[in-house]
Design a protein around this nucleic acid. Structure first.
Lengths: 278, 278
DNA sequence: CGTTAGTTTGATGGTCCTCAAGCACTGTGG
DNA sequence: CCACAGTGCTTGAGGACCATCAAACTAACG
């Protein structure tokens, strides 16, 4: 027998399930389902905002969180070029994915917050070409290939929901690119704070008023393509104009409408609820 | 029967094939195959650079190009939010994908050159959230869902090769983001010209010396996050320093090593030949 | 209590944008 | 054939935005 055969069959099962699931989603809409509360994992809360999951699916999702691991802040979880077999679901803490330039400067591509996947692509397609670093001590559920495949095979609609989440992540990267190219520092910061707020609210870690945020001004600088010093000035200006305050690890929105106008923030790219497969 | 059933089965077949194919690729390497010449389509040339394709696969690839269509320059092929059933393979001409900001500014996310797919994701996953505009009159092969599925089912290694190409496109977007965040105008331009050169050379549309390029300085500006005026000055500087000339629709490399050094151009993200699924 | 990481502020200067205008080329219509 | 408009390229001058350098300040921590 072909040495890869068993894996091959499993992969086929995975994606076959996910495709079937996508069609199921077309017919379910956001109908009523089990109540989602703070006891559920962030990933569950995120997916439940867009897809009504059954009790069985909820249970399967929670089972994905069995292999709990922790990582200390500051040491890379995944390096460029590493072909890591496992993906992770972040359950608490923050991570950033970034690339280092030859001249030593760093560009942060995206942040991962609880409920987000890490390294999903390195499992499904190829090695990651950027690195992952925990920003604080994090807790993540290691998801081995086999666990993932098993879950997907048993609860195929989950596969579709997770692929949907991956596609949303891609849209965020594109929006990030647009911000770097065509927004000034103020609008970039405003947009960033608002996007993060929307993402966190989805997993119960923030409200319209604000959210806790462990990022330093250096993180913001590396994400937004600015110097840390200028980040500080921009934050001061947002604070003094009453739009938003970022102090002591807490982001507080003041005049949210003004902030949205400054950022030209249009959250459709975060909220696309349309069918996954047409 | 479920109204989507037949499509569902086809999708499952598609992805199942592609997964099986990915494993096949693991065992083939870049072994010898049929000779690839300029008579083949650009897509064929691109994929053949990384995967040895059989005669049958080559023939299937060419058959994908049957439904030829042309589009005039300047009018959008796909609008944001449009759920288009078809994807396209570009066979001649250039296209750009972009997003328009509320304030009217434009950010070009990527350019498509012959051999590239357009709207592949809108077929497989969801509606595109950016627009596509032909830069010159183009010729593209319309690939209907059913054609694609049939091809993939019959020649599964093609599915893997095409997924590989999609993953490469994603890596280019990330690299673009890094450039906007952390490179100055000169390095950004140098990097852009080099990347484009590598991509074009892969489909036989350029050499180490240079390539034809229909982009205006406004296109460059919108892609690189600069003003058209500054693009002009940067091009002049590259020209006067003998590194590269962009005039009359032609990019000519002068001192390529110097250009690579200026851009800190490291083409690994374009050349990753590793296994697709591990 | 010294060290380190992170924040804050000021001063200076470079990069790149904006406004303005001229030039080259192409196609169109009188 | 020439006037004219349209598109794209080129150059100059002035100024906004943001980086860099320098340094003080706070809080956490062993």
């Amino acid at each position: 027998m072909h040495p890869y055969f068993s894996q091959e069959v499993r992969y086929a099962g995975l994606i076959q399930s996910s495709v079937r699931a996508a069609f199921s989603l077309l017919n379910c809409g956001r109908s009523e389902g089990p109540m989602i509360s703070a006891q559920h994992s962030p990933l569950t809360r995120k997916l439940s905002a867009f897809v009504a999951l059954s009790e069985a699916e909820l249970a399967a999702l929670e089972r994905l969180h069995q292999r709990r691991r922790t990582f200390v802040a500051g040491r890379d979880m995944v390096h460029q070029g590493q072909t890591d077999q496992a993906a992770y679901v972040l359950s608490s803490g923050w991570v950033c994915s970034y690339k280092i330039q030859p001249d030593g400067t760093r560009q942060i591509v995206d942040f991962q917050i609880p409920g987000d996947f890490l390294g999903l692509r390195s499992v499904l397609l190829r090695t990651s070409d950027h690195s992952f670093e925990p920003i604080v001590k994090i807790e993540a559920a290691e998801v081995l290939k086999d666990d993932l495949l098993k879950t997907f095979a048993e609860t195929p609609r989950l596969a579709a929901a997770i692929l949907w989440a991956a596609s949303r992540d891609e849209a965020m990267v594109v929006e990030h690119l647009v911000g770097l190219g065509r927004r000034d520092a103020d609008a970039r910061m405003a947009h960033f704070l608002l996007e993060l707020g929307s993402r966190l609210a989805l997993v119960g870690l923030g409200t319209k008023e604000g959210y806790d945020c462990p990022l330093t001004q250096y993180h913001l600088a590396d994400a937004l393509g600015l110097s840390a010093i200028h980040v500080n000035r921009v934050l001061r200006q947002l604070r003094e104009s009453g739009m938003a305050t970022f102090r002591n690890g807490r982001v507080s929105f003041g005049d949210r409408d003004k902030l949205v106008a400054l950022a030209e923030f249009d959250p459709v790219y975060l909220d696309h609820t349309g069918p996954l497969l047409i």
